[in-house]
Simulated assay, not measured.
Amino acid sequence: MAGNVSTPGATVVSRALAVLYAFDNGHRRLGVAEVARRTGLPAPTVHRLLRELAAGEALTRGDDGRYVIGRRLWDVGRLAPEQTELQQVASPFLSDIHAATRATVHLAVRDGMEVLYLDRLSGRASVPVVSRPGSRLPLHATGVGKVLLAHAPEQLRDAYLAADLRTPTVHTITQPGRLRRQLAAVRREGHATTEDEMTLGACSIAVPIVRTAPGAAGGSEVVAALGIVVPTLKRERTRLLTALHVAAQGIARSLP
């Protein structure tokens, strides 16, 4: 993108989008020089665009002079029809799981090669959780991510496993062969688990939300994943898994 937006013929809109797209899960706070480097745009142009985007509340400028994505932009993103509909349908089920388990509950979808968190209800237990609504994390290091990767198209899954995978902790599974076997087990058993793979002291268990197409010839597709994060899965694994399956089935039945 940098090569296109830095040319004289690039539009103001394309340059503004390039500035916004410079922010990602690994680059949440950026200064003028960092955005200029990531977009290929001149620093004066970046400085002007950042100020205008901040004035429109698409970005927020911190006391250190660096910028972060603004709440207004997140609110606009939440208007995407599929995500809004899914969140609205899933919301009462997430609340039911949260009330029954007092654990952190996640609703997530796959966005390209990452897991995108649509909603999160925080649990009472002191568990380190790095996700938040709108954040993106590695598919292979999270429970909901493993579910979504296991049910992704085979070509995408192969490309993902061939990439240089991040290792958030020493327990993160990155070996392609081991991951492939684990993903096969996720499809076979209907759920995924992690232990200290995204953050130390946090375990997760997740299940797919499967929408079945109407009609005798209709197939099914995994549209999202539902997960719980707890300090350990040793004591209440069965109870947590049952709660997730019941909620996932309820969400699936409620989807239009």
Rank of each mutant, 00 (worst) to 15 (best):
E154W: 07
T101P: 01
V222L: 08
V12A: 14
R61D: 10
T60C: 12
P153Q: 08
T104V: 13
V89K: 02
L30I: 08
T194S: 08
R157W: 06
T199M: 06
Q87V: 09
G177T: 04
R211W: 03
A10P: 06
P153C: 02
V223C: 06
Q155Y: 00
E34G: 15
T45F: 01
K146G: 08
V207Q: 00
A206C: 10
D196S: 15
A36V: 14
T193P: 04
H140I: 02
L49H: 11
A216P: 03
R28G: 10
E189I: 00
L244P: 01
H140S: 08
V13M: 12
A10C: 07
L200H: 10
Q182W: 02
E52K: 09
G62L: 13
A33M: 06
Y21S: 14
A100V: 14
T101Y: 01
P44V: 05
E57L: 04
L121N: 09
A162C: 13
M113D: 14
V68N: 05
H47F: 15
P176Q: 01
G215H: 13
R180C: 15
V210E: 02
A80T: 05
P92C: 13
V222P: 00
C203H: 05
G201I: 07
R110H: 12
R136G: 07
I251L: 04
E189N: 11
V109D: 02
N25L: 10
V230K: 00
R157S: 09
L86Q: 06
T104Y: 09
V127P: 05
I251F: 07
Q83W: 13
L53P: 00
E52A: 11
G3T: 12
P231C: 08
G3F: 13
S131T: 13
V229W: 01
L240H: 10
V246L: 11
L73S: 06
L116M: 11
L30F: 08
A80K: 04
L30A: 06
P176S: 06
R211V: 01
D96Y: 07
R38E: 10
P8T: 04
R71Y: 08
A185G: 05
T101W: 02
G62D: 09
L200A: 13
G40F: 11
Q83L: 14
L20C: 09
V32Q: 03
G190F: 02
E197V: 07
F23M: 02
A43Q: 13
